[in-house]
Amino acid sequence: MERSVKIRTTDLNCFYGETRALDGITAELVRHSVTALIGPSGCGKSSFLRVLNRMNDLIPDTRLEGRIEIDGEDIYAEATDVIDLRRRVGMIFQKSNPFPMSVYDNVAYGVRVNDLARNSKEIDRIVESTLQSAALWDEVKDRLGKSALSLSGGQQQRLCIARALAVRPEILLMDEPASALDPISTAKIEELIYELKRDYTIVIVTHNMQQAARVSDETAFFLSGRLVELSDTKQLFTMPSERETEDYITGRFG
């Protein structure tokens, strides 16, 4: 596969008030691949994820320095349409958060607010195809009108993935998407991530190093707001080039 850069950050610093959350992050994330972000709690991996779709804008007193490019475009430029950016960069949260609406309306939500369909038939089609992409269609096709909250935890998280896919994003940001799920549901999500990377660029934060090793092509190790190492996943877990990475993956701290 040709290596082409989807997301590039240069000297990225992020502050919450006086606290420095990100410290000089320069990284390249590859198109149509899965990049795992690992590191101990508070290391900045979630902050890094949330600056990529500017969800951090919502937190008061956030300050950002440096540059983030998606397809070569500065997403913090004056001319950037944040709303469109968030459509292009989907996000899956740690705690599955389907709206208290029907399964159907959850998936259709983004299509409706972004005006992506001409008529209700087209919405029907999008709902079906995205639920299929999220490997959920067979389980919910007879209960599309039921409340999304009646689904199991794993189904809810896959519904959230379907909801994000429905607006045709290019990038999916996942913030520990399986941390609250049982092993079987986790396996389904991981399988899904593997399927999705053909069409999407995926960035996933995970606490679980086995999971990072299983699902990702590249892994980034964060520590105290710094990016210590970003390299091929196999290499990072077998022959890390930094001492701190080795200490972390061998369980000496964190």
Partner: peptide, 21 residues
Amino acid sequence: PREYREASLALGATRLQTIFR
């Protein structure tokens, strides 16, 4: 819950759409 607002905004909804929908 804040999660609902975040989910909506992350899908490319505007603030106003989030409030009304």
